[in-house]
Design a protein around this nucleic acid. Structure first.
Length: 559
RNA sequence: GCGCCGUUAGCUCAAUUGGAUAGAGCGUUGGUCUACGGAACCAAAGGCUAGGGAUUCGAGUUCCUUACGGCGCACCA
C-alpha cells in the first residue's frame, strides 16, 4: 500500500488535487514527529489562509482509522503516525511473497533501452579509469532490466584509428610472436608504449600507411589487427566475468566503417554539411556550440561521424525508447554536438539519447596515461583486494570451507562498491589505502551484516509472521527502510544513479545492526517477538541480496 | 577568452530535488568485550554549507556575481 496516496485521499483542500497532496507528503526528519507529514506552506497562497491554520483544519477534519493512528498539526505541518503493526505486516508479507522480485516492476514493459558502456580499447589494458563506466553501466543494465525494460548492453569497442597502424608498425619492428602469445595484452601494450616513445618520423609515416591498409581490407594488416583484438577480448572477458558484467553487442567503431557514408550523404542532402578550412562540418554556432566535424580535410571520418552512424544504426536495429552513453564528462561537448546534429537531421528520437556523464579518476600523483604507462591496472586492484580479504578471512574465520570463493566476493565486491558509492559526477582520486579499507561504509560492512543474518536464520529457522505484533522503535525503523526499496530502485533508474542503491544498502545495514544490538532475537521476550524478528531478519536479507545483485556484488553466507 | 561541471566537519562523502534541529564513514577521544558473529555497537568533539547579493513563509538546494579547482573548445578517440 502507498501510504502517501492513502493519506492524500482522505484530505480535501479547495483548489488542490489529490495527486498534488500526495506528492507534497514527505517523511519527517525525525521519527518521533511522525511517519509522514504534509507541509501546508504552499497551500497558503491558494487558500489565503496561514499554513498553521490550514494544518489545524486538516488535522481536525481527518478521520483516524486502523491505518492512520494519529494526526497532529505542528507549525504548518500535519504529522501523521501510521499503525505500525499494519505497516509491518504489509511490508514483510510483500517481501516474503515477492522474494527476489521485491523492488522489481513492470514499469519498462515493452520498452527497450540501449546502454553503451565500458567500451574498451583494443590493445590497451584495463585500468581503473575504465572502472566507472563498467560498474555504472553494468548496474544500470541490471536496474533497468529489474524494472521490466528490454535492455541491450553495448560495448562500443575502441577499435578504429591510426593507433592500430602504430601498433602494427611497432610489431613489425620489435614484435615477437612468442612474447605476445605469452604476455598477451601487456606485451601488445608494451609495443604501443614503445612506439610512442621511440618512433621515428618514418615509422609514423608507416603507421598511417598500415592504418590505411587495415581500412582498405588488406589481408595481412587485418589478420594482425584481428589477432590483437582476439587477445584483448579474451583478456577483458575474464575481467568482465569477475565483475559480473555482460554485453549483448560488441559492435565497436570499426563496425560502422561502411555505415558512415550514408550519414554523410544524408547530411549533405539536408543541407547541413558545410565546408570549412577544407573540412566538412555541421555548423552549430546558432546553438552556442563549436562546429561538429564530420570529415577531415583528407576525407577521413571522425569520432562524431561514427557516433552518428552508431546512433542511427541502434535506432534502426533495436528501436530503443532510450539510449544511454555511459561516458566520462570529458565528452560532454561531443555528445551535445552529436545529439544536436541528429536533431537537426530531423531524428525526433534524438531526445531519447542520454549522455550519462561521470567524474574522472586520477592517481595521487596526477592523471593516468596509457601512452606513458602510468596506470593502475584493474586486475592488480582486484587481486590486491581479494588478497587482503583472504588474509582477513584467515584471521577471523580460519575454518571456513570455501575461503577462496568468499574472498573473491568480498574483494571484488569492495572494488565495485567503491566505484558505485558516490554520486557519479564526482571526480575520484584512486588510492590503494582507500580501496583496501574494509571498514565503515563499504560493501564488506553490508556483507558482514548479511552473514549475521544468515547465521541467525540458520540457528532460529524461518518463523511464521505473527498476526498482531506491534513493532518497537528499532524494528519499525528498519521496516520503514525496507519499504523504501522499490522507490529507491526507481529513483536510481530515473537519475541514472546506482549510488542511491549502494547508499540504501549501507543505511539499511546500519538499521539492522542497531536492531540486532537492541533486540534479542533468538531469545526474545515472547514467541511472537521471536517469530517476528526472524521474519524481519529474513526480509532484510532478501532486500540486501536483491540490492547487491543489482550492483553486481555477491553475498557470501559466511565470512 | 568562452562554455560545462564541481566546492558541505580535519579527510572522503550524504542530504528524499525548495521543507522542520544539515547527516554518515574515516581519523581523534572515551565507552561496550561471561556475545543471536567485534569486519560490530554506543557516546563525545568537530559546520557562517567557498565569499557576497537576490527570489519567499522557508535556500546546501533556484537566479546573479566573485574566488578556487576540474574538464572541454577544428581535422585524436
Amino acid at each position: 500500500m502507498d501510504y502517501k496516496i492513502y493519506i492524500a485521499e482522505r484530505i480535501s483542500l479547495d483548489g488542490v488535487s489529490k495527486e498534488e497532496i500526495a506528492q507534497t507528503i514527505c517523511v519527517p526528519p525525525d521519527t518521533t514527529m511522525g511517519d509522514y507529514a504534509l507541509p501546508c506552506f504552499k497551500f497558503a497562497k491558494i487558500m489565503r489562509k496561514s499554513p498553521a491554520l490550514i494544518a489545524e483544519t486538516i488535522a481536525a477534519a481527518f478521520e483516524k482509522d486502523e491505518v492512520i493512528k494519529s494526526v497532529m498539526p505542528v507549525n504548518g505541518y500535519v504529522n501523521f503516525k501510521v499503525a505500525r503493526g499494519g505497516l509491518a505486516q504489509a511490508t514483510l508479507r510483500r517481501i516474503k511473497e515477492e522474494g527476489e522480485k521485491y523492488g522489481a516492476s513492470e514499469l519498462g514493459k515493452g520498452k527497450t533501452i540501449c546502454i553503451d558502456y565500458s567500451s574498451v580499447n583494443i590493445a590497451k589494458p584495463f585500468h581503473i579509469g575504465h572502472l566507472s563506466t563498467t560498474a555504472l553501466g553494468g548496474a544500470l543494465y541490471r536496474i533497468f532490466k529489474f524494472l521490466g525494460y528490454h535492455t541491450v548492453g553495448i560495448n562500443h569497442l575502441g577499435d578504429y584509428g591510426t593507433q592500430f597502424g602504430k601498433l602494427i608498425s611497432a610489431y613489425k619492428h620489435w614484435g615477437n610472436d612468442e612474447e605476445i602469445e605469452k604476455g598477451g595484452i601487456h606485451a601488445i601494450n608494451a609495443l604501443y608504449v614503445r612506439f610512442n616513445k621511440e618512433a621515428t618520423e618514418e615509422m609514423e609515416q608507416e603507421a598511417r600507411e598500415y592504418f590505411r591498409l587495415i581500412e582498405s581490407g588488406d589481408k595481412e594488416a587485418n589478420e594482425l589487427f584481428e589477432w590483437f583484438k582476439r587477445i584483448t577480448l579474451s583478456y577483458v572477458e575474464k575481467i568482465y566475468d569477475r565483475l559480473h558484467i555482460k554485453f549483448d553487442s560488441y559492435a565497436g567503431e570499426r563496425f560502422y566503417t561502411d555505415k558512415m557514408q550514408p550519414v554523410v550523404d544524408e547530411l549533405q542532402a539536408k543541407g547541413l554539411l558545410q565546408e570549412s578550412q577544407g573540412a566538412k562540418i555541421v555548423d552549430l554556432e546558432p546553438y552556442g556550440m563549436a562546429p561538429c566535424l564530420i570529415l577531415r580535410s583528407d576525407g577521413a571520418s571522425l569520432y562524431a561521424t561514427r557516433d552518428l552512424a552508431a546512433a542511427i544504426y541502434r535506432k534502426n536495429t533495436y528501436d530503443f525508447d532510450k539510449c544511454l552513453y555511459v561516458v566520462a564528462y570529458q565528452q560532454n561537448l561531443h555528445f551535445k554536438q552529436v545529439f544536436k546534429v541528429l536533431e537537426l537531421m530531423g531524428k525526433e528520437w534524438a531526445k531519447d539519447l542520454v549522455h550519462v556523464a561521470y567524474g574522472m579518476v586520477s592517481l595521487e600523483d596526477g592523471a593516468m596515461s596509457t601512452r606513458q604507462g602510468n596506470v593502475v591496472l584493474l586486475e592488480d586492484v582486484l587481486s590486491r583486494c581479494v588478497e587482503k580479504a583472504a588474509k582477513v578471512l584467515e584471521e577471523k574465520n580460519p575454518d571456513l570451507e570455501n575461503k577462496a570463493e568468499v574472498a573473491e566476493k568480498v574483494g571484488v565486491g569492495a572494488v565495485l562498491f567503491g566505484a558505485l558509492y558516490n554520486n557519479k559526477i564526482k571526480d575520484i582520486t584512486f588510492s590503494y589505502e582507500k580501496a583496501l579499507n574494509f571498514d565503515g561504509e563499504t560493501s564488506v560492512y553490508v556483507q558482514y551484516t548479511c552473514a549475521r543474518a544468515y547465521s541467525l536464520l540458520a540457528k532460529g529457522g524461518k518463523g511464521e509472521l505473527p498476526e498482531n505484533y506491534e513493532p518497537n522503535e528499532q524494528e519499525f525503523d528498519l521496516i520503514k527502510s525496507l519499504a523504501e526499496f522499490p522507490e529507491t530502485v526507481r529513483a536510481a533508474a530515473e537519475k541514472y544513479e546506482p549510488s542511491l542503491i549502494s547508499r540504501f544498502c549501507v543505511d539499511t545495514a546500519q538499521k539492522f545492526n542497531k536492531f540486532y544490538f537492541d533486540c534479542k532475537i533468538l531469545q526474545a521476550e515472547s514467541e511472537e517477538a521471536r517469530a517476528f524478528r526472524l521474519c524481519l531478519t529474513e526480509a532484510t536479507l532478501t532486500i540486501l541480496k536483491n540490492a547487491f545483485t543489482l550492483l553486481g556484488i555477491g553475498i557470501p553466507e559466511k565470512m
